[in-house]
Structures are given as structure tokens and as C-alpha cells.
């Protein structure tokens, strides 16, 4: 495992998108130390800002220190594992297609934006647009899994096309805004306007029996769909605690958004 410890905290942005397992695995420690990274508008050697030890031949990287201004940790990675001890900035795992990222602290906006595969685990809270699309893009994440154990802010899964997002804490407004397909699970309170503009896809609001939905969502039925149990077991196998599979739990199913195509489904827990 290659360990990179931040020497001193700086509020200026650090571009870490080049420091991913497939780039560093073939390099010696000396070569890794000389890798250039952007600190603001200046390029500096990695060793100037980080104490580096170990080896990345096993494709495992570990960052430590407050990296809340680091941009793009694990961006475009295809394999291997990155673990961040502490906070990470925005665009963690941007466009990644494989591998695993684990952050023990909080992450900034757009974690897993436009990702295609792999898994991101955030033990703290996440910013806006988890698994969403960058501004101007037509699609958010198209595959993979994002698990947030804390809260997440607005626009979770905005324009997402496929994949799974699960948030153990509270969610902000506009969950699944304009989503094309995919699955989002919110364990605690969910903000307003969930599913606005969704075409297809599935939203599960586990705790929120008082969800305020837009008027273009229609009540379909009470259900205990077996799909929810399967989803619950899948999340359980990934280490994400949930109550989706409880047999005595009843759900209300809504369809919408009928201003888009109305093929989205929204499950709201309706008590035990």
C-alpha cells in the first residue's frame, strides 16, 4: 500500500485526479515523489505536499490529512482501491469505471459524478449532486454504487442513468432530479421535490412517511414488492444497514413524474 500523508493544510485547491492506482502502480517511490500535481495554478512535486511511503504494486492508495480542498480524488480510476482518512473535496471518483474509494470523513459536491462503475463509500456526509451530472452534461452516473453513511445535500442522482445510490442519513431537496434510470435509497428524512422530472428509475424513501411529492406523481398501490427485499439484501451484502427487506413493512407506491414519462416509481414507507 502506498501511503500519502498531507504535510500541511492549505485552503488552495489541490488537483489530485492524476494520483490513481493504475498510474502509480508501476512507479517506484522516487518516481511517485516526482509526480506533478497542481496546487492552484502552480505545478508542484507530490513530495512537496505529501510524505510518501510504501508501494502501490497492490494498487492500494491511502491518503491522510484534511483533503477537503482536494479536487478529483480517484477521478477516472479503473481499478484498485483508494482510502482517504479524513475529509475529501469535490468530485471524488468523478467518471470512475471500477475499483473502490472509501472516505472516512465528509466529501464535497459531486462525489461519483458521471461514474460508470466501481463503488464509493463515504462514512461522513456528502455535498450536493451525489452521483449527478456535471453542469451542462446530459447524464449523471451510468453505473456503480455510492453509499453515504451520513447525510447528503441537494440533487442526489441528478440526471443519473443507471447505478445505485444509498444514503443512510437525511437527504436534501430534489432527490433524483431529472433522473433517467437507476435506484436511490434514502434511509432517513428526505427533502422536498423528490423525483422532480424523473423519467424512469426507482426512489425508496424508507423513513419518510410524510414525503411531500410533486402534484405530477400519482398514487398507484400499497405494496411489499419482492424487489425491495432483494435491494435490501444487496445493500446488506455491501455493509449498508437498511430495513428494506422487513416483511412487515408496507410501502406506498407512486408513479411519476408524469411531466416526463411517468415511468418512474417512488416507494414511500407507510409505517410498520
Amino acid at each position: 500500500m502506498l501511503t500519502l500523508s498531507l504535510k500541511s493544510h492549505s485552503t488552495l485547491p489541490l488537483e489530485l485526479s492524476e494520483i490513481i492506482p493504475e498510474i502509480v502502480r508501476e512507479k517506484s517511490l522516487a518516481e511517485v515523489a516526482k509526480l506533478k500535481m497542481w496546487h492552484g495554478r502552480v505545478q508542484v512535486a507530490l513530495a512537496e505536499l505529501f510524505s510518501i511511503s510504501g508501494s502501490a504494486t497492490d494498487q492500494q492508495l491511502e491518503f491522510s490529512g484534511d483533503l477537503s480542498t482536494a479536487v478529483g480524488i480517484g477521478a477516472n480510476m479503473k481499478s484498485g482501491k483508494i482510502r482517504v482518512h479524513g475529509n475529501a473535496g469535490r468530485e471524488v471518483g468523478l467518471g470512475m469505471s471500477g475499483g473502490e474509494i472509501e472516505v472516512t470523513g465528509n466529501v464535497g459536491d459531486s462525489p461519483g459524478a458521471e461514474m460508470h462503475g466501481g463503488i464509493i463509500r463515504v462514512q461522513g456526509s456528502a455535498g450536493n449532486f451525489v452521483g449527478g451530472a456535471r453542469v451542462g452534461s446530459t447524464r449523471g452516473m451510468t453505473g456503480g454504487t455510492i453509499l453515504v453513511l451520513g447525510n447528503a445535500r441537494n440533487g442526489i442522482g441528478s440526471r443519473m442513468r443507471r447505478g445505485l445510490i444509498a444514503v443512510a442519513g437525511n437527504a436534501g431537496e430534489l432527490v433524483g432530479h431529472n433522473m433517467l434510470a437507476g435506484t436511490i435509497v434514502i434511509n432517513c428524512a428526505c427533502g422536498r421535490h423528490a423525483g422532480a422530472g424523473m423519467k424512469r428509475g426507482t426512489l425508496c424513501l424508507v423513513h419518510d412517511s410524510d414525503a411531500q411529492l410533486l402534484p405530477t406523481f400519482r398514487y398507484a398501490c400499497r405494496t411489499n414488492s419482492p424487489m425491495l427485499g432483494m435491494l435490501g439484501r444487496q445493500l446488506q451484502s455491501l455493509g449498508f444497514e437498511n430495513q428494506l427487506g422487513e416483511t412487515n413493512r408496507q410501502w406506498q407506491q407512486f408513479n411519476g413524474d408524469f411531466l416526463a414519462s411517468g415511468r418512474g416509481e417512488l416507494f414511500v414507507a407507510s409505517g410498520r
Binding site: 421535490h193 422532480a196 410533486l214 402534484p215 405530477t216 400519482r218 408524469f258 411531466l259
Partner: peptide, 21 residues
Amino acid sequence: LVILTALRAIIGGVELSAESI
């Protein structure tokens, strides 16, 4: 946003069930 959505639904011919939005 709720009011704009309702207006779009009315103009777009999407049925609304509520009396007050």
C-alpha cells in the same frame, strides 16, 4: 416549483387530483 409544475401539468394535459396546489 410546485406551482410551476402544476401549471405545466394543466397546459400539458396531465391530470391533477388535488384541489389546491
